[in-house]
């Protein structure tokens, strides 16, 4: 739980580099008025719109908020454990639980567009190719650090989601809570190929073993990311 303060984006935000100005932590404002950070969201190529994983926003019954970056550049030192954050309210625009994607509108972001973004999908990227992601791992422990991850595509899979086969790719990396909704880019490009949704968890294991807050059955280098092609239809 983090105490919120509401404020418009600082002017320096406009001058921020790509990662810091386009990738945010997203959360909800709970009934006690504190912010619960949930996952990662990123700016889209239309004014004021951002995207994340649908499970990050739940059923949208709480106030959804986007937490503003507190750095200008990803090379700056970040304060890992924050007691206070600046946030803006976001409203749900599109929701697709089958493909685990959601689009949100942040009215204050209306002047901002992620001009260079090219939303494609997983069809034209191959196994073994390099991808880059930015996200906020360990948000569950109150740690808000925008972090870059470099990994390779390990496999392309159909992941059955409620009787529909959904195109996913497997990344050879260990993801952590808070990274859901993180954008996955083809390396050295602005081509969005997928959105991070979670990690492989073996079926029918019954009880998950939780040690120190970590679900051991999901601690694998098998990270699932849904193809960005499904996002294109949503906004």
């Amino acid at each position: 739980m983090i105490n919120p303060s509401f404020a418009p984006p600082p002017p320096r935000w406009l001058a921020a580099d790509n990662a810091t100005s386009n990738v945010f932590a997203v959360g909800i404002v709970n009934s006690a008025g504190t912010v619960e950070l949930r996952g990662t969201a990123f700016l889209l190529d239309k004014p004021g719109l951002i995207a994340t994983a649908s499970h990050v926003v739940g059923r949208g019954n709480n106030t959804i908020c986007v937490v503003l970056p507190d750095i200008d550049n990803i090379n700056q030192y970040q304060t890992a454990l924050l007691k206070q954050v600046q946030y803006l309210k976001a409203e749900l625009v599109a929701f697709d639980p089958i493909h685990d994607l959601a689009v949100l509108r942040v009215p204050e972001f209306a002047p901002f567009v992620n001009h260079g973004l090219a939303v494609t999908g997983t069809d034209h990227i191959g196994v073994g190719q390099d991808v880059i992601s930015f996200g906020y791992p360990h948000l569950d422990s109150g740690r808000k650090v925008l972090t870059r991850f470099d990994s390779k595509i390990g496999a392309k899979i159909f992941l059955p989601a409620s009787a529909v086969n959904v195109k996913n790719m497997v990344l050879n990396t260990l993801a952590r809570p808070g990274q859901s909704g993180a954008p996955i880019f083809r390396a050295n490009s602005n081509e969005l190929v997928a959105v991070l949704s979670g990690a492989y968890q073996p079926p029918n294991t019954g009880l998950s073993i939780i040690i120190g807050g970590a679900n051991l059955s999901a601690m694998s280098q098998t990270t699932h990311c849904v193809s960005a092609e499904y996002l294109k239809e949503m906004y």
């Binding site: 499970h55 739940g58 409620s162 009787a163 979670g198």
Partner: peptide
């Protein structure tokens, strides 16, 4: 019924709220 309970099979979601 499917829509409201949707989720990718064998995937542990990585939002801090855990699975719906």
């Amino acid at each position: 019924s499917t829509w409201i309970a949707a989720g990718a099979s064998n995937t542990a979601p990585f939002s801090t709220g855990g699975p719906p």
